[in-house]
Simulated scan of single mutants.
Amino acid sequence: MENSRLSTATLEHFRAVLEEQRAELLQQRANHEVSLAEVRVARDGESDDEHDPEGPTIASEWSRLTGLQEEAARQLTVLDKALARVDDGSFGICARCGKPIGRARLDARPAAELCIDCARLAEKR
């Protein structure tokens, strides 16, 4: 695999972007956990929310929050892999074809591991 053609400054820029996104995700997960704790308390109580026309049911809120937690965990894995690529020098190189990933793509999707052409091919499958 080719070494990254990105400059040290560019790599550090993307490391900062990825770390910022990671910190935001961790904060979101913490907020979701607080909300899940509130739902657990409501679920364990005697609340009859199934007939409350004013808002979502406990079950639907539980489902929504656990879905958000699962997506945040998936995104954290993606970000951690991108940070590992920064560390090992493979960041900015397509994992499929070995060609550089365009700067515009990295700006739009800093954790991208495929160039736009390989991403399009993967989408078609």
Rank of each mutant, 00 (worst) to 15 (best):
9 A>L: 13
27 Q>M: 04
6 L>F: 14
15 R>L: 09
60 S>G: 09
22 R>M: 07
125 R>L: 13
37 A>D: 05
118 C>Y: 01
29 R>M: 15
77 T>W: 08
38 E>M: 14
104 A>D: 11
91 F>W: 12
28 Q>D: 11
117 D>M: 00
16 A>V: 00
60 S>P: 06
39 V>M: 01
122 A>G: 08
31 N>W: 03
118 C>P: 05
23 A>Y: 08
4 S>T: 15
102 G>Y: 04
18 L>S: 12
80 D>F: 01
103 R>N: 04
74 R>P: 01
51 H>P: 02
34 V>Q: 04
14 F>N: 08
1 M>W: 07
94 C>M: 14
100 P>F: 05
89 G>S: 05
25 L>Y: 01
7 S>P: 02
54 E>P: 00
17 V>A: 09
110 P>D: 15
85 R>H: 14
2 E>V: 12
110 P>M: 14
99 K>A: 09
77 T>G: 01
85 R>D: 09
38 E>T: 13
24 E>P: 05
112 A>Q: 08
99 K>R: 06
15 R>P: 03
79 L>E: 02
98 G>Y: 04
71 E>L: 13
30 A>F: 10
106 L>M: 04
80 D>T: 13
111 A>F: 00
4 S>L: 11
5 R>V: 08
69 Q>G: 13
63 S>C: 08
41 V>C: 06
54 E>F: 12
57 T>Q: 03
59 A>D: 15
33 E>D: 15
99 K>H: 05
78 V>C: 02
18 L>C: 12
42 A>Q: 14
34 V>S: 07
86 V>D: 10
52 D>T: 10
102 G>R: 06
32 H>S: 00
122 A>K: 15
91 F>I: 07
115 C>R: 13
72 A>N: 14
85 R>Y: 12
74 R>G: 12
24 E>K: 12
116 I>N: 10
43 R>P: 01
104 A>V: 02
85 R>T: 02
83 L>I: 02
58 I>N: 00
115 C>E: 06
21 Q>C: 07
2 E>M: 06
84 A>T: 04
36 L>N: 00
58 I>S: 02
114 L>P: 09
16 A>S: 15
55 G>H: 01
52 D>H: 13
87 D>F: 00
125 R>A: 12
30 A>R: 15
28 Q>S: 13
116 I>R: 14
93 I>M: 11
66 T>D: 04
60 S>K: 09
97 C>Q: 06
13 H>W: 06
102 G>D: 01
98 G>A: 05
110 P>W: 06
83 L>Y: 11
113 E>Y: 08
83 L>R: 05
11 L>P: 05
100 P>D: 03
74 R>S: 02
76 L>P: 02
88 D>E: 13
64 R>V: 09
11 L>Y: 01
39 V>Q: 09
103 R>I: 15
47 S>W: 12
125 R>Y: 11
72 A>L: 04
119 A>G: 03
47 S>H: 12
108 A>E: 04
5 R>T: 14
122 A>C: 07
119 A>M: 07
78 V>N: 11
121 L>D: 15
57 T>Y: 01
94 C>E: 12
81 K>L: 04
93 I>N: 10
101 I>A: 03
29 R>N: 13
109 R>A: 03
14 F>L: 10
93 I>C: 06
